[in-house]
Design a protein around this nucleic acid. Structure first.
Lengths: 125, 125
DNA sequence: CTTGATGTGAGAACCGATTATCATTCCGTC
DNA sequence: GACGGAATGATAATCGGTTCTCACATCAAG
């Protein structure tokens, strides 16, 4: 069984390497070989968010995902087949122009949806 | 007590007039004076979605909202204060340019977040 | 080794959203 | 005004996600 803080390091490393934000479930499964419990995963991601190390990504119709906070501004792509979420670089911008009169824009999110490269190939491209 | 299909018409009218998609809870509250039950609201919106009359709008970290299907392409603005959701016209477009190599883009969503005009005024603009 | 503070895994409990159940009400038809 | 099928409201049940509980393991310090 791993030492105390070892779990936390494992979660940090996992999120750093991941191609996009991961849910608690996904983290749990990815680290299953370490014997980490689901409750511990929730404890660690919560701690990570509270200390500013992780950012919580709220996904439409899905559980909260987590990613390292030190990523530059970006958005997300959700595969409709495997339901994994990938980071996408860049941003279309100009959202102020869409904002209705009298409204104050504070932030924005863009969600792309479709097939990731793996699932495109599988389903006979 | 209203006649059978009267409820459905009331929901349709409500969604038509609303400035943005509404949740089942919001519909229930808005039509409280008619005595409609929450279960009936869920039944009617489900029927509306199945028959193509309504579109389900999945909101990050919130319940499903519903809007008439016949609206032109648009996006949404969520007020961080009153949590209501408003339609916003227009679309920044050019999302293919953001899509990673090998990925197949099928759809996109844009969520703006901030203060609606009502809440901007209240909080001493 | 003992102690105490903290971390941990398993599972129970909780929560908001949604669906199922069921007795009742409504409506059109006879 | 009795009958049958569909709609309804209240509430229980369910569901996925998350948090809580608790007995146990771990570690650092004495």
């Amino acid at each position: 069984m791993p030492r105390p803080s070892e779990h936390f390091i494992a979660v940090i490393d996992l999120l750093e390497q991941a191609p996009g934000p991961l849910s608690a479930q996904e983290i749990h499964e990815a680290l299953a070989h370490t014997g980490i419990g689901l409750a511990t995963v929730y404890r660690l991601v919560k701690r990570g968010v509270q200390t500013g190390r992780f950012t919580a990504v709220e996904v439409p119709d899905g559980p909260t995902h987590y990613e390292p906070s030190d990523r530059p501004h970006h958005h997300h792509f959700e595969c409709t087949s495997c339901h994994r979420i990938f980071d996408v670089e860049g941003c279309p911008g100009h959202f102020d122009e869409l904002t209705p009169e009298g409204f104050k824009l504070e932030s924005h999110e863009v969600f792309l949806r479709g097939r990731c490269s793996t699932c495109v190939e599988e389903s006979g491209a």
